[in-house]
Simulated scan of single mutants.
Amino acid sequence: MKNSIIIVLFFLSLQSFSQKIQTKLGPGIDLKNEDVNSIFNLWKNYLSSNPDLIYDNPNWNDSEKKKYKSYDLLKSEGFLNPSIYALQPLNTVLYINEFGNDYIIHSMYYWINEDNTLNPLAITNVVAKKENGVFKLYNYLPFYTNVWKSKQVGMINYNYPNDYIFDNENAQKADKLLHKLNELFDLDLKNLTYYIARDCDEIHKMKGFEYIISMGRTPSLCRFYDTQNSIVYSSSKIGEYDMHELIHVINAKYTKAHYLLLSGLATYTNDKSASFGKPFLYYIDRIQNYIDANLGIDLADFEKLPQIDEIDAYYFVGALITDIILEKGGIDLLKEALNSGVEDKDLLQFLEKKVGLNKQKLDSLLKNKFKKASQNQNFTFRINY
């Protein structure tokens, strides 16, 4: 639903693999040009120096390493999981062109299939400019949004196109929500950067993805939260108050939380934008229809939760597990659950020990909650934002 692509490759489970990406030069690039030659070697060195890791990489500029925790925005979450670098594709520099006093590196990431056909993954734009007389790499985002408007509302710094009509009332609601989240979940959030793009494809492009395999899919619903850098990327259809992504600010605090709880919390609201443009009960009905047609489904088997058309069922299973925990012990028990571990066994053990639900009872209770909410067309949320 957030227009991200999760790619599962068996070899990626081997975390000891170094991310050294092979890079070659596309035809027609003049390496006799001293600047172009320096920039190509800079990019080649970067891609061969474990770019998926966060460290003081000498190929990246110092100012962005200070500004962002994950300074290369191409690798922060939202588009590919694992990141484009961790997928270890091949890379070809298509061309390097001047951009004022700077240069833009356009390169393609791809795999070669067994039948020798090309499997393209992405085309990215990365900026090269001089820092103390030496070329360094820079994100494309500040260059793309350089002429955009900016507005500070409370702790949120909004950035949006010049032709976008800003809604101050929704911005105030967003700031109020962040203060409430700070209070409820013991956060220490002081500022948040928020980009409002025209559509989903522009979110990709402004971050530096000229092309990526998820482009063109449900563009009006594309948005995500960059946990490491406290950045919300949303679209003009949702605007200043993207409640789903704003709730995700808790992710940075609760790093030991199971994904079902984090995803469920962001969906656990009657705000229409938080449930992907439709009311919460709309998706409850769709999932209940699936349960009725697949009576053998086990909702406590988290690895096998289905995708129903465009709906990832785990969001709403997570929301109902959140509701179960809140019903048992309120916000304090929920915070305890958020610290209980990231593995399926951790969450299941917590639910059995603290809530009294083994897997069989959890499956039964979840199905009862889906059925009751669908039949009554009513659901009471136990957190008031």
Rank of each mutant, 00 (worst) to 15 (best):
Y95W: 06
H248T: 03
Y55A: 14
G330V: 07
K253L: 06
Q375R: 09
P306V: 07
A293Y: 09
D298T: 03
D30Q: 15
Y103H: 05
K237S: 11
F11A: 01
Y233K: 06
P142K: 13
K256T: 12
I291Q: 14
R382P: 06
D226L: 04
G277N: 12
L12C: 12
I6A: 05
S4Y: 07
H204S: 08
I112P: 02
N358C: 12
L299Q: 04
N81Y: 01
F302R: 05
P161E: 11
S234K: 04
G216L: 07
P27A: 15
P306R: 09
I29D: 12
I231V: 00
A174W: 00
I324N: 05
R217P: 01
L94E: 10
D167K: 12
W43E: 15
L366A: 12
H204G: 02
D175R: 02
K361W: 01
L260I: 10
S107K: 02
N45Y: 08
P142D: 10
A174N: 00
S18A: 12
Q228R: 08
L260Q: 12
L42F: 10
D271T: 03
V127M: 14
D175F: 02
L47E: 13
I247R: 05
L365F: 00
I54C: 06
L53I: 06
L192H: 04
L181D: 04
K335T: 09
S38I: 00
L221R: 07
L118V: 06
S48D: 15
I112W: 02
A300T: 01
M155D: 05
K272L: 05
N139M: 00
L366Q: 08
S273E: 11
N45F: 10
I325S: 07
S83T: 13
Q88Y: 09
A319W: 14
S63E: 13
G356T: 11
K335F: 04
D332M: 09
